[in-house]
Design a protein around this nucleic acid. Sequence first.
DNA 1: GTCTATAGAGTGATAGAC
DNA 2: GTCTATCACTCTATAGAC
Lengths: 197, 197
Amino acid sequence: MAPQNMKQTIKSVAIDLFSRKGYFATSISEIARGSGIQKASIYYHYESKEDLLFHILKTTMDDLIAYVRRSIQDVTDVETRMRRAVRSHVHFHLERQKENFISNSELRGITPEHYQMIVDKRDEYERIFQDLIREGAEAGVFLTKDIKIVSYAILTICTAGAAWYNYQGRLSIDRIAMIYEDFIIDGLKGKHPFPPE
Amino acid sequence: MAPQNMKQTIKSVAIDLFSRKGYFATSISEIARGSGIQKASIYYHYESKEDLLFHILKTTMDDLIAYVRRSIQDVTDVETRMRRAVRSHVHFHLERQKENFISNSELRGITPEHYQMIVDKRDEYERIFQDLIREGAEAGVFLTKDIKIVSYAILTICTAGAAWYNYQGRLSIDRIAMIYEDFIIDGLKGKHPFPPE
DNA sequence: GTCTATAGAGTGATAGAC
DNA sequence: GTCTATCACTCTATAGAC
């Protein structure tokens, strides 16, 4: 284990423990044991336990935003852009399930300043989908009443769905992403506005 | 505060703290402070912190199962039974949001024996919906490929949806439940089997 | 049924040697 | 960059008075 990689090793051990046991139930000693070093050595790489959690949350959000942005950047047709966005959201959540689970459950462990930074990133992420919905509605391709509610619906349905589909383990990631693509687009184009009157 | 109610007081203070801060981040001292007693007095009412968490999880699951069962017991038509089940699921999750949040996030805090008991109850609950799906499919009213996947989809979509709908706070509980009823029934009766081939 | 006092263990974090 | 040793603190839980 080369010195340059220890920071990464600690992070991935922490991701595993935080996702399995939770942030508060995981001790620095356990992370050290899993990384093959003494607990004092953790503090050479990270300022504190909270700092380690924040780094995990921050890089996960940054990677998610970059991943979804990249997937739609060269596409102009709004339906295709939404399909790509949904597909990459589902892919990311299935491929990096542990980090995403932590991102959705351990926000209470960070300082108010760090919390605000993560919430800002989450808002930025949601805006990608809200812009797509607005774009599609203005072009007359999508039918929707409330852009915020629809964006929350899309994201939570995809996130939750990604979890239980994977749990069943019968379908490939591509297959799952495709099912959601069709499901969301059907909903957005269907003759019932959402939410209904 | 009468003696007979202290056990309940402690429980509801714990529900509030566990849902806001998480189980491991909440200390017995905080629960005592919120209940207006000293921390040692908690142990007269509950054996341990874990015992308190388990009581919360157990009563929530028992109440949920009884509530949904009661809502369908006098109805024979399978579509109406499913509508009633979805409606009561959404109602329960919105009316007792804190307890349900704990039930979905703090299962890692209990002992293996207690964990098994809760999981058994959750399986029992899911079976209510799986039986309804099977019943409807056999009667030719619903179209479905995989009963387990469909039941997970219904329950997670309703649970997640209940959370963000309430967060928006623009719609009444009845309105939300109705929207989900229609949404689920449309999905179950629609011409596309789920999951698609 | 609630109190004060404390045991006993573990925690996050730091100091300083190597 | 990692170590040993330890500080200062908090935690869950118990003992025993009232």
